[in-house]
Design a protein around this nucleic acid. Structure first.
Lengths: 176, 176
DNA sequence: CTTGAAAGCTCTGTAAG
DNA sequence: CTTACAGAGCTTTCAAG
């Protein structure tokens, strides 16, 4: 695909953000699914030599595009079978800061502020419904927390980290 | 033997689920934050020898407690600055199966069925608002999709994979 | 970018306490 | 569980094309 001249003005950090070429995207695509590949193996999967791949991976890492390489734990298998999303409504912006303290809890996996009919969104994974209740109780202890709505996950059909590619079929307005 | 043909039975394969001891939990805790440690380094972080650590990691991996080791890509830095959660309401269970086809899109990171005032919950990361619109359009194309509600993330304060530990402070009902 | 080669470290397994 | 000792493989760097 040709490289379009117009660039979306995405906010970028003070690192060189040269656009990714096809090789970089392939590398990221592979590593997002399986880090710990040897550079040799990675190289002949995407059609590059090992030293070249090594250089690119180093660049991608330094540029912050590869944030870390981590082991993906199976939540249920490690004793936390209860996954839930919690919407938190606060009055004003008061509760936002205090919510960040919840980062300390290993049960809390994500904290986002969102636009919509709610303010904050949490993803949590607990050992039991009691633990979830305890977490909700601590949420309501915060000043400014007006209400919460919890969505308990019954079944996870897909759960993965950010992928490298984009669907070009999404960019054009669908059939109308 | 009556083989119940449930579609998603995938929880535990035939493997021994001996409870994790303190060492296992420490190992998982370290690897969840930083895989790619040498066994020697991992060993003296948790107080074990390298061969012992190696043996345990192999067990944990075989038992499915370590699902994979992946590179964590920075969404915004890889050209997908728009993170959103989409609640999907379907009439009956019709739309559920068709939704799974969305796993193919690299924009879709999570698909869960949930209990609450909605049926399915998607986590998506797009290159642009147009792409999000295109995704929503394709959702509405599905039979049985009654409505969607989107929560666009303004700021992510925390985003990580499942952690090893649990908070014992959550188990007891809080002060009331 | 490529190939080739050399040095150093890690992995992996084996052995013995 | 531990320490110790190998062989194999991978990483990393350098040189030259």
């Amino acid at each position: 695909m040709a490289n379009s001249a117009k660039t979306h003005d995405v906010r970028q950090r003070a690192q060189d953000k040269r656009p990714l070429d096809a090789f970089d995207r392939k590398i990221l695509g592979e590593l997002a699914q399986e880090a710990g590949l040897s550079y040799a193996e990675l190289g002949n999967r995407i059609g590059l030599s090992a030293p070249a791949v090594h250089e690119r991976v180093k660049r991608l890492r330094a540029a912050g595009r590869i944030r870390a390489t981590v082991a993906v734990l199976d939540g249920p298998a490690t004793g936390k079978p209860l996954l839930a999303f919690i919407h938190v409504d606060t009055s004003g912006w008061g509760g936002t800061q205090e919510l960040l303290a919840f980062s300390e809890l290993p049960e809390v996996e994500e904290i986002h502020s969102v636009a919509g009919d709610t303010c904050m969104l949490l993803k949590v994974r607990c050992a039991s419904s009691q633990a979830l209740e305890g977490l909700l109780a601590r949420l309501y202890d915060l000043p400014g927390v007006k209400a919460t709505r919890s969505y308990v996950v019954l079944s996870s059909y897909l759960e993965r980290t950010p992928q490298a590619g984009v669907s070009d079929t999404l960019e054009q307005p669908s059939s109308r």
